[in-house]
Nucleic acid binder design. Structure first.
Lengths: 109, 109
DNA sequence: TAATATACCTAGATAATCTATGTAAGGAGG
DNA sequence: CCTCCTTACATAGATTATCTAGGTATATTA
């Protein structure tokens, strides 16, 4: 039973919400689509993270009834969330650059 | 007290060992240097990982006395380790591409 | 009417990393 | 000589993130 390891859940969620308001279940589908199925986020991962982010004030939730008649819980990015997204994007870039720097030097020497 | 989050410890270790045999403490110094201090791996993280990798057969250890007189435990990459490195590099590329794909679409729409 | 997809949720297990600590030897400075 | 800092190894226990595995409920399809 190997772990899937998404790791940057919050960054990904904030990034999705930068485009438009979406609901939890849709995030899972969207992440899979945009990543060509590299990300298969589990509900057990996402929902607790969303609740924590709402509590932290980076996202805000509101309910809305879909044309199908089902109720969905949409999330939108707050101002604080926008700042957080910028920070996390920078941190990701820093981290990815660092990994690549180590991988590159491997080729030499 | 925030966690530092290195996350790809094993990939980084294997990558360092692709250049030459080094010892644990040196890995920490090297990772910091090559990553410009983005990585500050803790001994409590590294040593257990090294022992697990040795047990898994991706690295092999041997002791050697340094010119200073101190004994160091060097690690070298095994054949299996080389395969593992290739796999993990591919997985990292896949993962990084997926994150970047999600971040990119954020800019549009 | 049974199965599948949608849509939310949580408790507990697992895994990765960190904190904190310990041992021990060498070098530098007072 | 004594103290402190650096080097170099190591482990136990805490913390955190993610997953597994369940649960509820409605709508659609076979």
């Amino acid at each position: 039973m190997k772990k899937q390891s998404i790791e940057h859940t919050q960054l990904l969620v904030l990034s999705l919400l930068a485009s438009r308001d979406i609901y939890g279940y849709e995030m899972i589908v969207e992440l899979a689509r945009r990543s060509q199925n590299v990300f298969e986020m589990k509900e057990g991962t996402l929902y607790p993270v969303l609740h924590a982010m709402e509590k932290a004030g980076t996202v805000a939730a509101y309910e809305q009834t879909a044309p199908t008649g089902r109720t969905r819980k949409y999330y939108r990015l707050t101002q604080k969330g926008r700042g957080c997204l910028a920070d996390e994007k920078a941190a990701w870039a820093r981290y990815a650059d660092a990994v690549n720097a180590v991988l590159r030097t491997e080729a030499l020497s």
